[in-house]
Structure formats: C-alpha cells, structure tokens
C-alpha cells in the first residue's frame, strides 16, 4: 500500500490517491485535498457535505452516493454540482478521506 504526505501527515492511499484508512483523515487534509481538486476554499456548505459523508461512512462502512448526500443533507443536486464542480462523486469522497462511492445512484 502506498503512502503520501499531506498536510504534514503520512497517510495510506490507493493508486488513485484515495485514502484507505478514514481514521487518518483530518480537516487539514481535507483542505489540502480540496485545493488539489481545484476548490480554493472550503465553505460552511462544503463542510456540511463532508461531515455528512464522514458520518454516513462511519455507519455504513462506505462512501455515500450523490443521491444519498442530497437526500441526507437537503443540499440540492444543483448546489452539490456547484460546490464540487466537474465530478462531485470522486471529489467529495476524496476530500472526505473515503474511497470511491459504491452504488450507482
């Protein structure tokens, strides 16, 4: 398993750069990942989604799908695609320190 240093911490990642141990995640890591994904600043709306994903994964053991996110947070599809432009599925999961979402919806 590969590792990388991000926000001053060494974490385990897979070959696509997703963290493989959610417990290694910190908010500082999220900020760094977001920058790499082209999101300069994480706003309160971003954090609401990230925190929902963290909680959802803690319960289910996997990253939530986009529809689970919109249903669970009340954030609309439009807002979700505006907050995390050009491919929210992978971006949200990566920033939240989770694997790619499992499930098609």
């Amino acid at each position: 398993m590969a590792t990388r240093v991000i926000a001053g911490k060494t974490v385990q990642v897979n070959d696509e750069g997703f963290m493989t141990d959610p417990s290694e995640w910190t908010k500082e890591i999220a900020v760094e990942y977001a920058k790499e994904e082209g999101i300069a600043e994480l706003t309160a709306d971003h954090w609401k989604i990230i925190e929902f994903c963290r909680q959802s994964a803690a319960t289910s053991g996997k990253a939530p799908t986009l529809r689970t996110i919109t249903a669970g947070t009340g954030v609309s599809t439009k807002e979700l695609f505006t907050l995390f432009p050009k491919g929210p599925a992978k971006k949200v999961a990566k920033i939240s320190g989770l694997g790619k979402p499992e499930g098609c919806v």
């Binding site: 986009l66 695609f81 432009p85 491919g87 929210p88 599925a89 098609c104 919806v105």
Partner: peptide, 11 residues
C-alpha cells in the same frame, strides 16, 4: 444510470 455516473465523474 450511466449519464448520472458520467456527470458524477465530471464527464
């Protein structure tokens, strides 16, 4: 289904 997956991946 495929369209939604594509949009989620920035396609």
């Amino acid at each position: 289904v495929m369209g939604w997956a594509a949009l989620g991946n920035g396609i």
